[in-house]
Amino acid sequence: MTDFKKIEENLKKEAKRLLESGEVTVVLAYGKGFDEKHPMPFAAKSVADVDNIVFNEYCNYNMARYLVRYPQGTKIAIAVKAADSRAVIQLIQEEKIKKENLVLLGIPVIGMKNPKTDEVIDSKTTCGMHNPVLYDVLLGEEVHGQKIVSPYDVLAEYEAMDKDARWQFWKDQFDKCIRCYACRKACPMCYCDPCFIDQNKPKWADKAPQSPGNIMYHLTRFHHLAGRCIDCGECSRACPVDIPLYLFHKKVAKECEEMFNQVSGMSIEDKPVLVNFRVEDSDKILE
């Protein structure tokens, strides 16, 4: 099992070292919340801030979400778990950030929990990886020997549904949406300003939180995340009404993987699949 205290110590130590030496100006990590179970994303900007850093099984935030908030060129250290490191890679691919401005503090971990349900989050709601894909410093022992479960296994049930039942399922889910946009805001890949849903000309969707606008918002958002979503599951955890957005994102990721033979956020050399092409792409994918 992961030694959370040890990682917390290492995280503090590294943060302190990096801030002290002036190597970075911000350390994006996790901080104390109003109680143990509710830690918060935290930006440490001085050595004094380091005391506030924590790490426990509820720190499932994807800190990559905050990277684009700092001006280009800011030296940032960021704590990354597996999916978070993939988000960083994806953002590098999209030229939102540069590797040379970053120090990745890798956290290998198993047993992160969703504070709302106290369930362990694994391949069901996230990509299910345990070790960061890219890091400069590793803050714990790499996790090995875990049974490898495909993050797409959860989809089977939904893929097997007949299309009318699946439509009904999604319609019921989207009807619950109150359009608070927490999903978009929690997502590390949703950095557009303005987001299509906020545009008035053209107005892509109704503003009212009811079926037509909700469906348009979600389908388009799934499309915008195609080949970019790194399956951290933050969108679904952020949702106050628990819409299982991750299912749709996983499905799109799976399709992209099959069609384009590339997994998002795995290498900084890659280009996002939808801003790329191969002449030999087959027309079969259109069928």
Binding site: Q168, N276, F277
Partner: peptide, 15 residues
């Protein structure tokens, strides 16, 4: 081609 293929898959999964 890539983009519209994705659109198709999304429509399909939405039912």
């Amino acid at each position: 081609r890539r983009r519209l293929a994705t659109t198709k898959k999304i429509l399909e999964f939405a039912g």
